[in-house]
Design a protein around this nucleic acid. Structure first.
Lengths: 334, 334
DNA sequence: GGTACTTTTTACATCGTTGGAACAACGTTG
DNA sequence: CAACGTTGTTCCAACGATGTAAAAAGTACC
């Protein structure tokens, strides 16, 4: 039922290896034979057995992508782009979800042997430096997003500090004075970086920093954003603007403001981060930092590709991909 | 560098096969030897070479999931659940994106050989009956969502006609008289089914059907929903309610209504379909049909699992998973 | 001690493919 | 025409695992 090289060879009247040569585009095959083999290939509908080929070649043809959850829009969008980028280079992508928890991330990382995948793109959320394999014995690893500072591993991300500063400077430029932030989470590197950007923009504008205006958020989900916004608005002197560390938090914040009968941006201006597709359609639409996700995916796949195909000597790369501030109704108004 | 059975065997002082027996839990191994092998396994950190194992077993350990685009929330959420369900049963999931175009769907379908994956879950958008392999020669295939009527293939979905009727009946029960629909697309089976449900609910309520109130939508994206809503509201006698064939269209419609200065649900009530996570947070939040996506994913993975592990004789199954009407502000008000 | 049976281990072939070496056919050249 | 390099093809081993069957070791019984 399954067609193997042997079947094709029998049909074409040549050896198995000659068929293999044709399939793999080896140059020196007599035109006559090539023609016969190609006919036989077409007639039988031969498809190489990927497993066997990879067993022989020592490659698997798979790339792993480790993300917290596909149901989070940012990761859904990113995964789609990674798959597309990988497909261009002949790889299939295997997705592992970790729920952003450290044990699952560790487990996933250690299960990614060279037999299963040729390389991996990982988007850790809770991992710490110690969790990374000390020996580079395994497969090439490229880290996306957060930068666990002292790990010498390839890394692709936008400049989170600068992006956060850009977002908050936009708010200070609009004349907002009490600018809050939602998303503090000491366990996440991304959070520290966006917080740093937030603080530096405040300083730059001559505004003082207040811990009370920085709401924590364990999970960066919509409901958390709503709850955090409500508690900020309950403060004695509530904020007139909020920088949310991602769009989901911001969408939740939008809703909380509306439920309290206040207006965005008149009473509170809101800026998000990620530019999820939904953020262009919320009411009001959301001003946000728009990372170039396509560039991110391409750069990451490209880097892991280079590592897999030989470049093991050059030092760990740290690639920054571009972003833009997308100004919409939640700060500009209608 | 890579540890094979042979290395473990040498270390433990037994044959390769005995190690294999231990690894695979074969009963008859002398306790003493079992202990030695287990120590050696631990000491070397052995991990089986999946490729080789599967070559021998004729299994790959992979399932394919074919969807239009991961960036569409419904598919992102579904994919996440499928991966989780598959993982429970020891499978990894490979995701293929088709953009919902027929050529890409055909191509993907035919590339899914038995070497690459053990089975596939496919969510076609444009495929027609003729595109399915006539011979069941390949791998087990389970279709999700739309039912291309005359193809004898396993199928898991909710009852789309009933769900659509439930949604629209909710609108008629609220006393709405001019109920529009957005999402007509003759090339998509799902569209026909939801349209049928829409019509039957109208009939049931004694309302007449009008072609003018059914807006077409090639892609079920937010921007399309917004455009369609605007053209409906520009009609001489505009609708007082709209049933959108998915939540994205509905989110777009919400926005269009707001841009025209009208109110939801006072002027126009809106119902969506899919219950994307974002729909609970839109302003107003969206009444929608909530399919039990977890049940869908579990049922589909379970079915393909049964087919792979032997059940090839029983006739194609047609499993219906539950759904519920989730009533929110876009019809109920605040 | 021999026979029959069970438990445990091993050697070997095999899955489908490709790398490498060996071999064959060919035309060129001195 | 012998020697040679170039092309084209075949044969064999190997990737790492497991199924099969046979060998080896152990046990029980007469």
């Amino acid at each position: 039922m399954t067609v193997t090289l042997k079947d094709v060879a029998t049909l074409a009247g040549v050896s198995v290896k000659t068929v293999s040569n044709v399939v793999n585009g080896y140059a020196f095959v007599k035109p006559e034979n090539r023609r016969r083999v190609e006919e036989a290939l077409a007639a039988t509908g031969y498809r190489p057995n990927v497993g066997a080929r990879n067993l022989r070649r020592g490659r698997t043809g798979f790339l792993a992508l480790m993300v917290p959850e596909l149901s989070i829009p940012y990761f859904g969008e990113l995964a789609g782009l990674v798959i597309t980028a990988a497909q261009k280079r002949g790889w299939s992508v295997l997705i592992e979800q970790t729920q952003g928890t450290r044990p699952r991330e560790r487990e996933t990382l250690s299960s990614l042997g060279p037999h299963l995948v040729d390389g991996a793109l990982v988007h850790p959320e809770a991992l710490e430096a110690a969790d990374f394999p000390a020996e580079p014995g395994g497969i090439p690893l490229v880290m996306l997003g957060e930068h666990a500072v002292d790990v010498p591993i390839d890394h692709v991300a936008i400049d989170n500090v600068l992006a956060a500063r850009t977002a908050v400077s936009h708010l200070t430029a609009l004349g907002r004075k009490r600018i809050a932030a939602i998303g503090r989470n000491p366990a996440r590197g991304t959070s520290s970086q966006r917080l740093a950007g937030y603080r530096s923009a405040l300083t730059e504008a001559g505004l003082s920093y207040s811990d009370a205006l920085v709401a924590p958020a364990e999970k960066w989900h919509r409901s958390v954003g709503a709850a955090a916004m409500k508690s900020l608005l309950a403060l004695p002197s509530p904020p007139d603007a909020v920088f949310c560390f991602n769009d989901l938090l911001a969408i939740g914040a939008l809703r909380a403001v509306a439920e309290l009968g206040l207006r965005v941006p008149e009473d509170v201006a809101i800026v998000g981060f990620d530019n999820n597709e939904e953020s262009a359609f919320s009411l009001p639409s959301l001003t946000t930092i728009a990372p170039d996700k396509t560039a991110l995916a391409e750069a990451a796949v490209d880097l892991v590709h280079r590592r897999i195909t030989g470049d093991t000597t050059s030092p760990p790369q740290d690639i920054q991909t571009p972003f833009a501030l997308e100004i919409r109704e939640s700060t500009r108004g209608r």
